[in-house]
Write a protein that binds this DNA or RNA. Structure first.
Length: 541
DNA sequence: TCCCCTGGCACATTTGAATCGC
DNA sequence: AGCGATTCAAATGTGCCAGGGG
C-alpha cells in the first residue's frame, strides 16, 4: 500500500523547489508564484500538515561536487553503500506525529550510458528496469521529534546489480542513471497506511542523481571518493592516490592505474573536446537541467550521442522535486484509482503483500506543484488489496515493538520510468524493505507464499489483479493504458495492465528470514518477508 | 578486441563483546 | 549488581586489479 501511495507521486502534485537544497513548499510557492504553486490548502492543523515539512540535504556541497563531475555509484553483487551517503535534516514535522522515512531510487531516464571521451554518453536504450525496492529508514516509524532531533542518515542503504538479490538492497542496472527520492509518510494511529488520511511527501534532490557502475569510470569521481570517504583512506597518500598501488606491487615508482592512463590519454587527446564538454557542463546543460527531470522528462538529451554531462550541471541552484500528497478523501478514491487499471486481475497468486506503485514524473505535476485537497479526484493507485489486512490489523499494533518478528519488511511496487510509461516501458515493481527496527508495515506478505513464489520484479508489470494483491506480474511489452500521463484523467492509471500476464517469481529468495531467527547484523535481517498490514499502530522509537 | 563484470586483495573504519575499575 | 570507560578482535566498507565472459 505504501508503495502504491508513493508511486502515486507521479500522478500527484509535484512542485519544483529551488534553493538551498531545501524542500520548502512555502518558499517554493513564493518563488514560483500562484500560477505554478497553488496556495496551500487551509488546514485546521497547520502544524501537522505534511506539506510544511522541510528537508535539507546534508553535505549538499559534497553532493554538488560529485554531481558536477558526474556522480557514479558502485554497485556490486553483495551490495554497495552510496557515497556520499544520503543524509537529510528534516524540520517542520509535528513532534508528536509519527512518520516513516524511506528512499527509493528511480531511473532518471530510459538510456544506457557509456563513459567515452571522458564523459558519459548515451549508449542505447535502458535495460529492463530492475525490481523496484524501497529502503525504509531503520528508525521508522518515529515521531517528528525524533526525526528532527538529528540528521536522518540513510548511509546503510545499499545498491546492487544482483537481480536476485535476497538482501533487499536496491537493485539497479549498471551504466544507468538513477535518481534517489526521499519519501516522508505520515503515519500514526489516526493516520496510518491505508487510512483515508494518509499523507506523504516526496523530496528529490537533483544533486543526488548518479550513474550506477560496477567500477568507476571517471577518475575524478574516484579521487573524490577517496578524498572524502573515510573507508577509502587507505588509498590516500598521494595526489593521484596511486602510491598504494606501487606499494602493493612492490614498485619503486608510482604506478599509474589503468583508469588514470585512460583519463590522461583522454584529456590530452581531447583537450578541446574536454573543453567543449566543460562548456556543455556549464552551458546548455543547465538549460536542460532540472526542468526536464522535474517535468518528468528524461534528463538525457534525445540525441543518443550527446554527452549526458549536461545532466550534471556544474553549478546551479539546488533543485528538487517536491511532491506532497494527502488523502483527505475517503478510500474510495484510492480504490478506484487502483482498481481501474487492475480490474481484470488474475487473482492468481496470494502474494498480495507487495505494494506496487507507479510514480512518474509527469509534467502535469509541475504545473500544479501542490494541491492536496484537489488530489482526490485523481488519486493515484496507492492501495492494492490492503483493505482487508489493514482493517484487521488496525488495532493490534501496539505490540509492534514487541513483535520483534516483524522487524523488516519488503514489498513490491511499480516504478515507471519518469515519462516512459506512456511509451510502453514496463513499470518496475518496487520492493521496499524495512530495516530491523521497523515494526509497521503496510502489508504482511506471508513469508513462504508471498516471497518464495514472488514474481520477478525486474520486468514487472502488474495486472489489475496483482496490483490489488500486490503481486508483481510480467510486464507487458507495452501498454497504452499503463501510465499516469496517458491515463491521467480522473482515474490515473499508473500501471500497465496486462490481463493474463503470467506470474513469475520475483526472485529466488532462499529461505526467507523469519522474525527473530536472524542475527541482527545479518543482512537478510533487514528483509523480513512479512509486511504488516496497514493501519498498524505506531510505536515510539 | 572491447567492454563490462566478478572475485580477491589490502587497508581503514566501524561495531560489539569482553574486560576493568569505580 | 550496575554503570561507564577502555581494549581488542571481528565485521564491514573501500578502491584497485587481474581475469573472465559476452
Amino acid at each position: 500500500m505504501l508503495q502504491e501511495k508513493l508511486s502515486a507521486v507521479t500522478d500527484e502534485r509535484m512542485s519544483r523547489v529551488q534553493g538551498g537544497g531545501e524542500t520548502d513548499l512555502l518558499s517554493d510557492q513564493a518563488r514560483l508564484g500562484p500560477s505554478t504553486a497553488p496556495a496551500i490548502p487551509s488546514s485546521s492543523e497547520p502544524d501537522q500538515n505534511i506539506e510544511n515539512i522541510k528537508v535539507v540535504l546534508h553535505e549538499r556541497e559534497l553532493w554538488k561536487k560529485f554531481h558536477e563531475t558526474g556522480t557514479e555509484m558502485i554497485i556490486t553483487k553483495a551490495g554497495r553503500r552510496m557515497f556520499p551517503s544520503y543524509k537529510v535534516k528534516v524540520t517542520g514535522m509535528n513532534p508528536k506525529t509519527k512518520y516513516i522515512l524511506l528512499i527509493d531510487v528511480v531511473p532518471a531516464d530510459d538510456h544506457r550510458y557509456k563513459f567515452c571521451d571522458n564523459k558519459w554518453m548515451v549508449a542505447g536504450k535502458a535495460e529492463p528496469a530492475m525490481p523496484g525496492r524501497l529502503y525504509v529508514h531503520p528508525d521508522s516509524p518515529a515521531t517528528g521529534a525524533h526525526w528532527m532531533r538529528q540528521l536522518v542518515s540513510f548511509q546503510k542503504l545499499k545498491l546492487t546489480n544482483n537481480h536476485l538479490d535476497p538482501f533487499g538492497h536496491i537493485i539497479l542496472n549498471s551504466m544507468h542513471k538513477y535518481q534517489p527520492r526521499l519519501h516522508i509518510v505520515k503515519a500514526d494511529e489516526n493516520n496510518a497506511f491505508g487510512s483515508k488520511n494518509t499523507a506523504y511527501c516526496t523530496h528529490v534532490f537533483h544533486e543526488t542523481s548518479f550513474i550506477s557502475v560496477t567500477s568507476y569510470q571517471n577518475h575524478k569521481i574516484t579521487q573524490l571518493k577517496i578524498e572524502n570517504n573515510p573507508f577509502a583512506k587507505g588509498f590516500r597518500g598521494s595526489e593521484e592516490g596511486d602510491l598504494r598501488v606501487s606499494r602493493l606491487q612492490g614498485k619503486d615508482y608510482p604506478a599509474i592505474s589503468k583508469n588514470m592512463v585512460r583519463q590522461r590519454l583522454i584529456s590530452s587527446h581531447s583537450h578541446l573536446a574536454g573543453k567543449l564538454g566543460a562548456d556543455v557542463l556549464t552551458g546548455h546543460s543547465q538549460v536542460l537541467s532540472s526542468y526536464q527531470y522535474e517535468s518528468g522528462a528524461p534528463l538525457t538529451n534525445s540525441d543518443s550521442q550527446e554527452s549526458i554531462s549536461t545532466h550534471f550541471p556544474q553549478s546551479r541552484e539546488s533543485s528538487l522535486l517536491y511532491h506532497c500528497f494527502k488523502h483527505r478523501d475517503n478510500a474510495r478514491h484510492l480504490e478506484l484509482g487502483c482498481k481501474r487499471p487492475y480490474l481484470e486481475t488474475s487473482s492468481a497468486v496470494s502474494e498480495e503483500h507487495y505494494f506496487r506503485a507507479a510514480p512518474s514524473y509527469e509534467s502535469p505535476l509541475l504545473s500544479h506543484p501542490y494541491c492536496t485537497e484537489a488530489i482526490t479526484s485523481r488519486q493515484a493507485c496507492m492501495y492494492g488489496s490492503m483493505e482487508t489486512e489493514s482493517g484487521s490489523v488496525a488495532g493490534d499494533t501496539d505490540d509492534l515493538t514487541n513483535s520483534s518478528s516483524i522487524n523488516c519488511n519488503m514489498w513490491a511496487t511499480m516504478q515507471p520510468y519518469p515519462r516512459y510509461s506512456v511509451e510502453g516501458v514496463p513499470y518496475q515493481p518496487f520492493t521496499a524493505h524495512f530495516t530491523n527496527n521497523t515494526t509497521v508495515t503496510p502489508v504482511v506478505p506471508h513469508p513462504t507464499s508471498s516471497m518464495g513464489s514472488r514474481p520477478p520484479a525486474d520486468l514487472g508489470v502488474y495486472d489489475s489483479a496483482t496490483v490489488q494483491r500486490g503481486l508483481p506480474i510480467i510486464p507487458p511489452s507495452s501498454s497504452s493504458s499503463s501510465c499516469a500521463p496517458a491515463v491521467r484523467s480522473d482515474q490515473p492509471s499508473l500501471y500497465h495492465k496486462k490481463p493474463g500476464s503470467p506470474l513469475r517469481p520475483h526472485r529466488n529468495f532462499p529461505a526467507y528470514p523469519t522474525q527473530g531467527t536472524l542475527p541482527f547484523r545479518d543482512p537478510s535481517y533487514q528483509y523480513q518477508v512479512g509486511l504488516s498490514n496497514a493501519g498498524t499502530h505506531w510505536t515510539d522509537s
